[in-house]
Amino acid sequence: MKNYELLGVDANSPEEFEERLQDLDAERCDVEGCPLWTYRIRLIQILLNYPCWKQMGYVEISDVAQRLEDGYNAVLDYFRGDWWTEGNIRHVELESPELLPIKPWLNVDAIIKDNAQHMDRSSPSCMFQWYEPLRSGIIFGGLLEKWDDVAHICSALDADVPPEYSAGTIIDEYFHYYLCVAGKLSGQWDAGFEKLLESAKKCRQKRLRDLLAAWEAAVAGDQAAFDKAFPAAIKSFIKRKDDPSEHMGAALDETVIWLIAKRAGLSFPELSDKLNAAVMTCKSLGLDTAP
């Protein structure tokens, strides 16, 4: 059985994925290089689709390692690049205007303003979207075992980064948890992260408590605790219809936790095929013979 079948994911005409892969490649070409923040986020999502589609068994992707590398570079540029600045947009306007998504309702000034509202973190009102790009970056870099590079991405975030606006769909403590993940991976853990971790641990939502237990076991390198907490986290993911961890059927939060556990020297626990199906590993993506 394919992983999406094991997980009971409604793949919506899985036989059409070869065609969808071509569409995805075409969309990638459309958004690549565009210096507008929404396009940058979309590029990262597209690049994350490739390993997730392979994981689910929708389609075979032979060069997944290259696509992970491209994904990592897209995330690095998102956090560290100056592509969003007015100076860069003016430069692109002169040198390669075809990269700007000019529309009747979107001129160059509007692009500059929109970018500043979402990327200029020196502004207190900045609506910086960081958690999905961060999680994607950890997955891309972690699967390639480029942990120094992951640390470089994570160090773009400190404990003062505000939770994203989610219209009440995601609790603040979930964002706090991801900042803690970044804090540990960057090696810049401080009292601010400690405070966020305390806040996340007080959360009464079982789903987040399950994730925290698995992550803490991974960070501590505690195999026995991990063997217990990691399957529980995957089970709570599978039980849910709608979860922020889910992308194309794959469990992204659990994938992050596994990669951190692997880095800490832990072994992948014995899991049922169904639980295995949700988590991307080096082995499941054909990058290595071990998870």
Partner: peptide, 18 residues
């Protein structure tokens, strides 16, 4: 609605903690 099931499960998890 499966999302209603999620809501019920979430509430149950919180009630366990309470």
């Amino acid at each position: 609605d499966p999302e209603a099931e999620d809501a019920r499960d979430d509430l149950l998890g919180i009630m366990e903690s309470l």
